[in-house]
Amino acid sequence: MYNFEFQKPGSIEDAVAALRHEDAMPLGGGQTLLPTMKARLASPTRLVSLGGIPGMKGVSSSGDTLIVKGGTTHAIVAREAGGVFPGLAQLASHIGDAAVRSRGTIGGSLANNDPAACYPAAALGTGATIKTDRREIAADEFFQGMFSTALDEGEIITEVRFPIPQAANYQKFLQPASRFAMVGVFVARFADGVRVAVTGAGNDGVFRWSEAESALSSNFSADALAGLSVSADDMIADIHGSGAYRAHLVKELTGRAVLAAS
């Protein structure tokens, strides 16, 4: 990788200040950013590690909300979220592999918004609130297409507030080489309705499958999906699968998630 200046500030304020530098980038767990830099596809001149900021890690719950601090690793969520939100713990426990989960963070994953990442499906699928150093952003506004979010330059995710569903399940069908999601579907059932978020499949990144949401809201069973479909034209096509195949998987996995959450 190209050289850069490394900083590891001790507070959010110092991190925000450090990130004002031109071409500075925040470093969470680095599980996506560092390989990208090694391939010389990203060349920040300054890397600001968020790993030294106290209070940036941890999982807690308050009423019907699960709060995950922005620097919390996938391993911690997998271990600690299960009591109140097993669907999220299950999702976190299948991100990458054990070594990736030791380092990768929820804030880093959401901020990167890889179209095949798992966490965006959970955030969008629950209608989570993304809290940053300066504001709160609803998940529905946060994700703005592949690798694109509502975050400003240098804005840091400090915590994610997940409404805890009555039931939820995440079905991840692996892209077998990268082990990202070829298609991942997060289904969450709340008192006031069902949300369905799909990652890995869409040309524009994570998306809500609203037809399925309305069908499932009135009848929470896989049968309710009969007759529904997503358009193959909107799906990613690559050497691992066609758009039609991904479109099929979206429906298939949604059904399986509903079954598992029932």
Partner: peptide
């Protein structure tokens, strides 16, 4: 080569 890394070449 489309399968030019372990992100796309499956073993």
């Amino acid at each position: 080569l489309l399968s030019a890394s372990y992100m796309d070449y499956t073993m």
